[in-house]
Design a protein around this nucleic acid. Structure first.
Lengths: 206, 206
DNA sequence: TAGATAACATACAGTCTGCATGTAAATGCA
DNA sequence: TGCATTTACATGCAGACTGTATGTTATCTA
């Protein structure tokens, strides 16, 4: 039984170590915040040394960026899984909204993605990440709604960003204990307010 | 000419030192971000020692909170000065929005109030501060609009928070170089979308 | 005017980050 | 297959920062 260090390719080693570091960092960043989490803690949880961390990542911030990137991808995936794209434009938007709010209830996720992320990486970097993941489906949904004449024509980038900001704040408020129903109601009202005709829609806020 | 330490009351000393510290911290926090600003830098700029800082504030975070508090008050003041409350509900909202976006163009203000503030103090603390200053007028404007039947009835707290979030994101986007007109257009559309009747309003987005 | 207290200044301990250096494993090439 | 090179780490170190404890001076109070 030769247990001592089976031969592993460098690519496998790198991949495994990076994954361990990201996983450990994710756990701590969601539990405690970026500033309160130290690199000694992270590497201890990952079972490596700080040398490994600084070999694979330029600095603590780069590791944080990797965690945010991954978490944003997970959120986007959860949304796409929960909201089938084969619906009327408005229904797709609503389904996506609910899926987003549900996804953001994972512990620590709001702080990671909505508080620490923008502060540590900057809004520009966060926009870049969001546009690559979550916001993409939102923007496409809005474009589809506009094309289907189900929504007034507006600058797409700005509308996407502002609705996303509203969703984000709603997620934070719900996590803080506010009424999820209230926020959902207002979000739906904001979206429905963008309808062009204003025929008396069925007031199904639930 | 006896120049050596004219007698000053303790209250005056405290007031002056606190003001110096807050002013120096404000300058650095708006130039560089909370994390990149060190207490040695702050006290050097204020002309005191770290002993004074830790005598007047529990920690660096408490000094930051004082800076945020003051800056939020200044923003609220600028808004109230720029937007006369004697108008129709919708016009008052629009005037307030423009005043807010204008006020947030002060260098570093968006990072201080919209990025570092929430990350360092938490969203709950920022909500508390906002509700005491800026958001107050917004909420009152919304309540007035609802009473005047100029806006659909919605949960006030949630509506205030979500609109404020949209304004915040707009301010960040404009600072980052996005089209101020686009964001203004979308903000107005969101507000107008909350009108109950939907008579074809004059499309004066400018 | 003396003692108490507030407003600082100075000194120190502990921790953290980033880098430089050292070592073992893997890779590439003759 | 053997060896030089590169990669993937581990270890050690320097600088900086935060918070506190202690010392000193100015103000307040009785």
């Amino acid at each position: 039984m030769q247990q001592k260090s089976i031969r592993r390719s460098n690519r496998d080693r790198t991949e495994a170590t990076r994954a361990d570091l990201i996983a450990a960092a994710r756990k701590l960043f969601t539990e405690k915040s970026y500033a309160e989490t130290s690199t000694p803690e992270i590497v201890a949880a990952a079972g490596v040394t700080r040398g490994a961390l600084y070999h694979h990542f330029a600095d603590k911030q780069a590791l944080f960026a990797a965690v945010v990137e991954q978490e944003a991808a997970v959120v986007a995936e959860e949304i796409e899984r929960a909201s089938p794209p084969s619906l009327f434009a408005r229904d797709a938007l609503i389904a996506g909204s609910d899926a987003y709010l549900a996804a953001m209830r994972a512990p620590g996720r709001t702080r990671l993605l909505l508080l620490d992320g923008p502060a540590v990486l900057g809004r520009a970097a966060m926009d870049e990440i969001d546009n690559r993941h979550g916001n993409r489906t939102l923007r496409e949904g809005l474009v589809a709604a506009m094309r289907a004449q189900a929504m007034v024509k507006l600058p797409v980038e700005a509308l996407t960003a502002l609705l996303a900001a509203a969703f984000d704040r709603a997620a934070l408020a719900v996590e803080a204990g506010s009424s999820a129903d209230d926020y959902r109601t207002v979000l739906m009202a904001l979206i429905d307010g963008l309808s062009p005709h204003q025929a008396p829609r069925p007031a199904r806020t639930r």
